[in-house]
Amino acid sequence: MNRPLRVVLSVLVLAVFAVVFIVPFVFIALTAIKTPAESSLLQFSWPTEVALVQNFVEVLQTREYLLVIAFINSTVLTVVSVALMVILSAMTAFVWQRRPGRSGPIIQLIVLSGLIIPPAVVPTIWVLQALGLFRTMPGLILIEVVFGLSFSTLLFRAFIATIPKDLDEAAIVDGAGPLRLFFRIVFPLLRPVAVTVIVVQSVNVFNDFVNPLYFLPSHPTVQLTLYNFQSQYLTQNNLLFMNILLITIPPLIMFLVFNRQMVAGMTSGAIKG
């Protein structure tokens, strides 16, 4: 491509991308800093009066700091479930990758069905109720762990395949048992893929709406507050969009810091199918 053509094409693409992909976010930000009256018009315009601080304070104070509580709940949910997911799926992937033989295809079938099969909602509630875990934070945490296991295990397995088995043997010769071999020798080597799993899954859990809606409607998580505010805030679009703005910040930070790992995790499978 010659140079002038390339510049023209680039500017054109940039303009289209700006309109299609950036304008909606600008709209969120603009509406979030408007006064209630102006935000109710839902226009794409610069606010006549910037109410950034007032809206920020007000959205936090609404319904006795519900959003703050929701942020704490979502953080607990995300941190605990992703931590469990990482440990359990790394252990599973390690044994799965290292043991050739009959168990391999069976586990593959189980892992793939976890990716494909839509969870049966009411029967899951029935099981959680029988265990006394329905509408509890531990119950929802375990649900998130189970639904995230398959994807994490596949990522870990692909990475473990690149670690030579000689390393295991050397550790065993030195007298390590399986637990020490895994946690002291192998797990530290999984750091790159562990970061990928953590980043992708924490964004997934933080943004999850369906599971908190079904299994923990009593405790607000950030996605549920947004959903509840939607009907409550018919005339207060400024607060609704301030809420959207605030809950977009954690994924944005993740994205800015871990861009490469995130992309690697989400596009895995593109090459091998």
Partner: peptide
């Protein structure tokens, strides 16, 4: 990055915005 970012944003937030 611009193209990928919406993937990471809350689906509910995107729904309300649109």
């Amino acid at each position: 990055s611009v193209l990928f970012f919406p993937v990471l944003v809350s689906t509910i937030g995107v729904g309300i915005t649109f």
